[in-house]
Simulated scan of single mutants.
Amino acid sequence: MEDVTDAGIYARESPYLERYVQLGVASGRALSVSFPEVPDEEAETAESHPILDRIFEYLDGLEEVDFDDVQVALTVPTDQRAVLEQVRTIPYGEQTDVSTLAATTPDLDPEDDDDIILVRTALDGNPAPLLIPDHRVRDGPSAAPPQIEQKLRSIEEL
């Protein structure tokens, strides 16, 4: 991945999403992705930013785009980080469910209610939806607004 060292908040309007895509970056890593109706006052309108460019290629839906090489700085508890790292392995155009996600995440048991709650909590608190594609977990919460989650699923024909 191209070096992305400029720290800051970047935003670009998406006609497809009918919202902005806002990206927080520090030390070459993505900190957050959000979809506000109006970007934060601190956000720089970015006509060109390597990660936003890739996100907009994805939103165009003309070709399969993945974000495997984008470094995401996860500042969440370790057990939630393990869940979100597992979500990143779900391939473009495929989906899973919460139980299977728990079964494939190290040290979690899909039969344990607390582990299922942990998976749901991690998905709901995902700081970088799309880069961490929680929209591919069909029966779990997404950190993206519901209308955005549906549009992301539509792109991948999920």
Rank of each mutant, 00 (worst) to 15 (best):
R120E: 15
G140E: 13
Q80P: 04
F67G: 00
D113A: 10
V119P: 09
Q71M: 10
E44P: 06
Q22K: 07
R54D: 02
A128P: 08
V33N: 01
L31Y: 05
T104S: 07
T105S: 01
M1G: 09
R138M: 11
V87R: 00
V25Y: 01
Y10E: 04
G125E: 15
G28D: 07
T78C: 04
D53A: 08
R136V: 11
N126R: 09
F56L: 00
I51N: 02
L52E: 00
L131W: 11
A46N: 05
L59W: 00
R138F: 12
L123C: 13
T75I: 05
Q95G: 14
S154H: 10
S32K: 10
G24Q: 07
S142T: 15
S27D: 15
E41I: 13
V25T: 01
E47S: 03
R81A: 14
R136Q: 11
D112P: 02
T75Y: 01
R19N: 13
L62K: 13
D53F: 02
G61T: 06
K151S: 14
D68Q: 06
A143L: 09
L23N: 02
I9M: 07
A144M: 15
I90Q: 05
Y92K: 03
D66Q: 03
P110M: 06
P145G: 12
T121I: 11
Y92P: 00
S34G: 06
D97C: 04
P77I: 11
A11I: 15
L17Q: 10
D109T: 03
V70G: 01
V137M: 07
D6G: 04
E149T: 15
D115Y: 10
R81S: 07
T96C: 06
Y10F: 15
A11D: 14
S154E: 13
F56P: 01
L101F: 01
L118G: 11
R120C: 14
D79Y: 09
E41A: 13
D53I: 02
A82N: 09
E94D: 08
L84D: 05
E149P: 08
T121Q: 15
L31K: 08
P106W: 03
R138K: 13
A26Q: 08
L59T: 00
A26Y: 07
A30Q: 03
R138Y: 09
D60E: 12
T121C: 12
L74Q: 05
F56E: 03
I132P: 14
E47Q: 07
E18N: 12
S154C: 06
V72T: 00
E2M: 11
T100R: 06
A7S: 12
T78G: 04
Y92W: 14
A26T: 06
A7F: 05
E18C: 06
G93W: 10
T100F: 05
D40R: 10
E64Q: 07
D114N: 10
V65I: 12
T104D: 04
A26C: 04
H49S: 02
T45H: 01
E13V: 10
P106S: 04
E64W: 00
L131F: 04
L152P: 11
A43V: 05
F67C: 01
D134M: 09
D139Y: 14
D114G: 09
I116F: 08
P127T: 14
I117W: 14
